[in-house]
């Protein structure tokens, strides 16, 4: 059974590229672009891993991460954050909130793929 990735990102062209890469690699991919409903989307879809952008409309990726870590069902869910802000404080903030992996834009397709594989492999133990 294919592993399921939920991509929460509001830039359609980035969504299209990442989705294509993951689909081609054998993953099942869904995309979501609204920050306000992202938490409920994660809870309803129960993906194997989440790729989460920081700058989203209506609710930031940091707030979404905090809410997901606050409930038992998603406390250990593999979550990789994407940000155009690579400052140390952003990375530290994400780590404090319990992020599993962190990538700074711009990134290569190969890095995205490698990080997603490592993330899910680690979760599978």
């Amino acid at each position: 059974m294919r592993k399921h990735i939920l991509l929460i990102e509001d830039e359609p062209n980035i969504v299209e590229a990442i989705t294509f890469i993951l689909l081609r690699d054998g993953w099942q991919v869904d995309a979501h672009s609204d920050g306000a409903t992202a938490v409920s989307k994660v809870q309803s879809m129960a993906p194997d891993a989440v790729i989460l952008d920081v700058m989203l409309p209506n609710k930031s990726g940091f707030d979404i991460l905090r809410d997901l870590r606050a409930v038992p069902e998603t406390r250990d869910l593999p979550i990789m954050m994407l940000t155009a802000r690579g400052q140390t404080k952003d990375r530290e903030r994400a780590e404090d909130l319990g992020v599993s992996a962190f990538m700074t834009k711009p990134f290569s397709n190969a890095d995205v793929l490698a990080n997603v594989r490592a993330l899910v492999d680690r979760a599978d133990g």
Binding site: A17, F20, I21, A84, K105
Partner: peptide, 18 residues
């Protein structure tokens, strides 16, 4: 503006690679 540039560059890099 910088966020816009980085986001667009990310998209261009991924798409151009494909």
């Amino acid at each position: 503006t910088l966020h816009e540039i980085l986001t667009t560059v990310t998209s261009i890099r991924s798409t151009a690679s494909l």
